[in-house]
Write a protein that binds this DNA or RNA. Structure first.
Lengths: 353, 353
DNA sequence: GTTAGCACTCTCTTTATCCAAGTGCTAAAA
DNA sequence: TTTTAGCACTTGGATAAAGAGAGTGCTAAC
């Protein structure tokens, strides 16, 4: 057990993982010795493979079936072995093209990013929009709907932060509601959702006149901590059929069951550690929420101190990590470019920052 | 070819379809004679089956594999043979329970209906929200977003009809925008989307001051003819694995590819003939948009002259039509109940109707 | 018009055999 | 001590043969 990882072992492990990622076929000692390590014989490689298996990095389905990397091997591969990749001209063009049209709102941006990632990586893409908690409320308005109902809409510069129907007194006319909308709107403008509870008590005691409406608004604002379903996007579910592990119907079933639920998706990609930019979760590890046999690679983007959401892919453990991570990095750069140019404009208009 | 459909043939065809729907196993002459037609022998049944095959209602995969209904048989079955079913107490309770909470907005209602249908039928449910074209605009507002952008929101009593970002002159301040919002809002209140183009010219010539904003608004309104992605809902995609035809990976692939695209879904369930309440489309028929080997059963609901959307299921051709149709009918009734009680309230508030 | 009987067809399962691939181990070589 | 050659052993996959089971079509009798 207490065995050192010689350089040659690392090299062989890298070869095995690379090879398996590319071909999906268990790799044999012979093929390694012939294609990659021409200076030693297959028997030598065989000994090393046996040792690597002993160390827990490799497994074999049956005695004569070549070796396959274990989850542990993938982790090690990503940490130490993997080589940086480069995108082809074509892919770079595709990214540039996709983000050329800098249409304003976040909803489109999320969908767009997700689509780009899915297309370039050939995996199913998952995306979760930016948490709105720290965005500054640009406007707040209540639109009359009759029946003692109103629609509360909250927007920032680039998105509908939230909207929901609230109750208002039946006696309140449209004009009165519009008026209240103004007053309350002015009050929250420039604040963030997370600041709402700070002013809650103060505000409630002050506005006797609109007290009931006010408390409805505050309740709504406070309920906005969880991401909306609309902010969770899934693109290219059908892409899994391009990967041989999903010729087994059971795997497809598992996969589809998980991704059918937005809640589950949010769980899988939601609890990012903010420190880490790119995050790899491999099934059957400590990440209990990631389905067995699946890997999830996500990147959490932020630019100018502003969170831009988490994007990534979900697919088989035997995933082309190099490609995926390269794509995520390049998409991140593109995204940064857009937002920084936009932020410049915005500084002029944003009252408090 | 010119052969009459005797009563006995009809009866036998009905047995075959019923049996095949229940068991997914090709049905044999022997099983029919034993279980359903005890007064004749299997040989007699065999003759009838041969005749039905001649007529195009039955096919067999191989010479000794029993018979399977053809799409034509399903159509005939639905038209003439099918028996009305009843829901169990449990199912009825479930529906009642699900619609007890009459929370106002349409978005939730659509999701709820779709979920109920999927749960009760055990098929994947597709739903498309009501076309908003004929709903009356209850409020229209433009919320300032800075940067020469504004969010245009249009609501009826129960839903966000539409929202989108529009350009406004950079010179326009927040207050001015709010003011314009009022003026323009008043103008369109009570109108329907389809009425917008009627007043277009008149309005544009009149409002010189806000002309630019006005034309942006009108452009936006006119672009709202297609359903929004959010109004197309899919629930229970994983349910297909409960049906044996989807043990074949190719079928799953087809299915998933189709339902991954909201556009395709809209196409499939979109072009309903308004006259018909319940609509059955069977793959490989004239309905080119329905995937091969799939059936789509939809119901378009309306109450009080108001369209409530189209709901239904998509699944294998060998579908439990009786159950599905019964569920759709009962959901329809429940829906009608909700809306009629709501409509009563609304009449008082709606200015022109 | 109906039925019994039987040959025929087709699929599915089981069994046996062979083949190729890859390993583990041992003994010799470096 | 490390590397290597050689070989026995294991396993899955492919192929073929054989038998069972199910269901039909047809013919001849009822």
């Amino acid at each position: 057990m207490a065995m050192k990882m010689s350089d040659r072992k690392k090299k062989i492990l890298q070869i095995v993982v690379d090879e398996y990622i590319n071909t999906a076929v268990p790799v044999s000692s012979k093929s390694i010795a012939e294609k990659h390590l021409t200076d030693v014989s297959s028997a030598t490689v065989r000994n090393e493979l046996a040792a690597l298996e002993e160390l827990g990095y490799l497994t074999q389905f049956h005695t004569s079936g070549g070796r396959v990397p274990s989850p542990q091997a993938y982790r090690f591969y990503i940490e130490e072995l993997m080589q940086k990749g480069n995108l082809s001209e074509k892919d770079l063009d595709y990214i540039e093209q996709a983000f050329r049209d800098k249409t304003g709102d976040v909803e489109h941006l999320i969908k767009n990013v997700s689509k780009v990632i899915s297309e370039l990586t050939d995996y199913t893409s998952v995306a979760i929009g930016p948490r709105g908690d720290e965005e500054h409320i640009r406007s707040l308005a209540m639109l009359p709907c009759g029946e003692g109902k109103a629609l509360l809409v909250i927007v920032t510069g680039t998105r509908i932060l939230r909207d929901s129907f609230i109750d208002v007194p039946e006696t309140m006319g449209d004009d009165e509601l519009t008026n209240a909308s103004h007053v309350i709107g002015k009050l929250f403008e420039g604040k963030t959702l997370s600041q709402v509870k700070d002013v809650e008590e103060e505000v409630l005691s002050e506005f006797g006149q609109y007290r009931q409406v006010m408390s409805e608004v505050i309740e709504a604002l406070k309920s906005y901590t969880r991401p909306r379903d609309e902010d969770i996007v899934l693109t290219g579910a059908e892409k899994i059929f391009n990967h041989p592990e999903y010729e087994d119907i059971e795997n497809v079933k598992n996969f589809l069951t998980v991704i059918s639920s937005k809640d589950k998706i949010a769980e899988i990609i939601g609890d990012e550690d903010d420190e880490i930019q790119i995050n790899v979760k491999i099934g059957s590890s400590g990440d209990a929420d990631v389905p067995e046999d699946c890997s999830v690679v996500t990147a959490t983007y932020s630019a100018g101190g502003k969170n831009l959401g988490t994007y990534g892919v979900i697919g088989p453990i035997r995933m082309d990590y190099t490609k995926v991570i390269t794509v995520l990095e390049n998409v991140g750069k593109a995204l940064e470019g857009i937002v920084s140019s936009k932020n410049k404009d915005k500084k002029d208009n944003n009252q408090d920052e």
